[in-house]
Design a protein around this nucleic acid. Structure first.
Length: 415
RNA sequence: GGGCAGAUGGCAGAGCGGUUGAAUGCACCGGUCUUGAAAACCGGCGAGGGUAAUACCUCCCUGAGUUCGAAUCUCAGUCUGCCCGCCA
């Protein structure tokens, strides 16, 4: 959630920052009005409550002495009604305020490039040069079907479209990949954890998937529970409603989980192959940091993901997302895109974001900062989507005969 | 799924209709002592809002209710623990 105090105090700064994210200033003006309105209402309410408390105290004292409370009783009764009415009005105002505030995205950093969509993202650097093939490279879909690695038909039979079955060596390769990634992350100081793949509504609200993006989530029928779209939800919410000690920071975590997304807005896109699935495995990085440390940790996370791809020998590039392409909670994001020879282009395989205090404010994650309690910064990043890494390896490491060479670093994991 | 017990500050744990936002212990912070540390002793120490700072308001799982007044009473729900059933 954005800082409503900042909105009150410095409207123009907030409005200007959010223009980068294509947010209508009128909406922010409305939010400001709602806030002012609520605060006023709350103040009046508190005055009445103070009066009620004082009268009740007086009432008790008179009664203890055996005095007459007749007149006072009347006054107290009337005030009570007034309190109840104003309470209700105030609650409604607060609800309206919250409802709107929770749908406003985070402020992008000054460093975030201007831009409307993907086209305006800025390449930071390329790592490794794509290989030159002396034959026509095949798509992972065809390679996978021919090798008996990927069974798209049975995935659909079991569940529905956008579900794929990995057979034999593909399944082993997937396991090798996430083992390798977890070990790699551990060597970079990330603690490995294993978390539930289901989270409750409060958790999804804390990381910002709810209330705005409910359509993208698989919900458990009849329960306030959801399949996680990313383990960022589980890892970040580990600390929801907690006050950490300053010495505990930064907390750096990594986990492998399945992720589930409805892909509601992307019907017809990437339907062939397993680029875009309803279920995919992902090794995630999440950090909880002191506000002054988050930029440093951000860089560490980007290089962890990039170095992982380098270790796997996969050509990739780093891209700074422009304002319009930035996610809801992100203040800044670096995407990592891996080379797909069949598509002759780079596709996203990792996304590292500094969320600053946006999730911390929603989820009330704080640390003891001397006398006071201060919101932490949260960061998240895929240390690679495992499914996309698998197919990137297939395409980049294919041989003329349709077989797949295995990256050297994985050999120990495939014994 | 059935039965029983419980939910209070960072943790443990009292309180069971009024001056209790909450005893006590631990942890933590400041000080005395010490070459330094520990121990001992003294002081401070829940969260959110509000304020220049006070006042003041809210919060003892959540939501309704009783009452002039609720952490304390009533009802509903959620969660946790234990026992039984089921089960990887």
């Amino acid at each position: 959630m954005i800082d409503l105090k900042l909105l009150q105090k410095d409207f123009d700064t907030v409005a200007k920052a959010l223009q980068k994210k294509q947010i209508d200033t009128a909406l922010l003006a409305q939010l400001k009005t709602l806030t002012t309105d609520y605060k006023q209402s709350l103040q009046s309410l508190e005055e009445l409550q103070a009066k009620q408390n004082a009268l009740s105290k007086e009432f008790g004292q008179i009664k203890a002495k055996g005095g007459d409370v007749g007149a006072l009783q009347e006054e107290v009764k009337n005030n009570k009604i007034a309190v109840a009415q104003l309470q209700e009005a105030t609650n409604e105002k607060e609800a309206a305020l919250q409802a709107l505030a929770l749908t406003i995205p985070n402020l992008p950093d000054d460093s975030v490039p201007e831009g409307k969509d993907e086209e305006d993202n800025v390449e930071i650097k390329k790592v490794l040069t794509p290989r030159v093939f002396d034959f026509e490279p095949k798509e992972h879909h065809d390679l996978g079907v021919d090798l008996g690695w990927l069974d798209f038909k049975r995935g659909v039979k079991l569940a529905k479209s956008r579900f794929t079955v990995l057979m034999s060596d593909a399944s082993r390769l997937e396991r090798a990949l996430y083992n390798f990634m977890l070990d790699f992350n551990r060597s970079r100081g990330f603690q490995e954890v294993s978390v539930p793949a289901i989270a409750n509504g409060d958790s999804l609200l804390g990381t910002g998937q709810l209330p705005k993006f409910a359509d993208d989530l698989f919900k458990i029928e009849g329960e306030e529970l959801y399949l996680i779209p990313t383990s960022e939800v589980s890892l970040t919410n580990l600390f929801r409603d907690e006050i950490l000690e300053a010495e505990e920071l930064p907390v750096k975590l990594t986990a492998y989980t399945p992720c589930f997304r409805k892909e509601a807005g992307s019907a017809g896109r990437d339907t062939r192959g397993m680029i875009r699935q309803h279920q995919f495995g992902k090794v995630e990085l999440v950090s909880i940091t002191h506000p002054e440390e988050s930029d440093k940790v951000f860089d560490e996370m980007v290089s962890t993901a990039s170095d992982l791809l380098t270790a796997l020998g996969l050509p990739h590039r780093l891209v700074a997302l422009c304002g319009g392409d930035l996610g809801f909670g992100a203040a800044k994001t670096t995407d990592i895109e891996v080379w797909f020879p069949s598509q002759n282009r780079y596709r996203e395989i990792s996304s590292v974001s500094n969320v600053r205090d946006f999730q911390a404010r929603r989820a009330m994650i704080r640390f003891r900062d001397g006398k006071k309690n201060t919101l932490v910064h949260t960061l998240n990043g895929s240390s690679l989507a495992v499914g996309r890494t698998l197919i990137a390896i297939m395409e980049n490491y294919q041989r003329a005969d349709g077989s797949i060479e295995i990256p050297q670093v994985l050999e120990n994991y495939l014994r």
